[in-house]
């Protein structure tokens, strides 16, 4: 065992950066989920307490962070499906490259309408 985990800093092609991105988005989503359950729990305190905290989600800066969160979730979700297909679908490994492109296409197709709608709400257009 090397004293530093040398194998974890991948340098290379798609499979490697997508693995790093899957990991980073997974941790980010998990941390957000912890906070999000806590803020939702305020519905047990009072309507005022809940509304005040949920109000911060409507602030423009937080609104931009939400765009980042959704970008991360969409990537993690469809990259996750790609991983599942590579593992379970007999032809998955042969279509690695196409699957990777598919993740990118679905990501753009879902992300663009979301950004437009969400920023319209946040910036009150």
């Amino acid at each position: 065992m090397p004293s530093k985990p040398a194998g974890t800093l991948y340098r290379g092609r798609e499979g490697m950066w997508s693995w790093v991105a899957h990991r980073i988005t997974g941790v980010g989503i998990f941390l957000f989920l912890l906070v999000h359950v806590l803020d939702t729990a305020l519905v047990r305190v009072s309507p005022e307490a809940y509304n005040e905290v949920i109000g911060t989600y409507k602030n423009p800066i937080v609104g931009l962070l939400e765009v980042g969160l959704v970008a991360a979730i969409l990537f993690h979700a469809f990259n996750g499906i790609r991983l599942i297909l590579v593992d379970f679908w007999a032809k998955g490994p042969r279509y690695q490259r196409q699957l990777m492109i598919g993740v990118g296409v679905i990501w753009v197709v879902l992300f663009v309408p979301f950004v437009i709608r969400h920023l319209t709400h946040v910036f009150g257009g």
């Binding site: 519905v43 309507p47 979730i73 979700a77 499906i81 709400h121 946040v122």
Partner: peptide, 28 residues
Amino acid sequence: GLALVVLVLGHLFVNLMLGGGITALDFG
């Protein structure tokens, strides 16, 4: 992961895309 695709994306769609999106979120 497969179940979460439906659960999480459905949650995001109903809460952020439909109706007033984030502006409509409150206790009610």
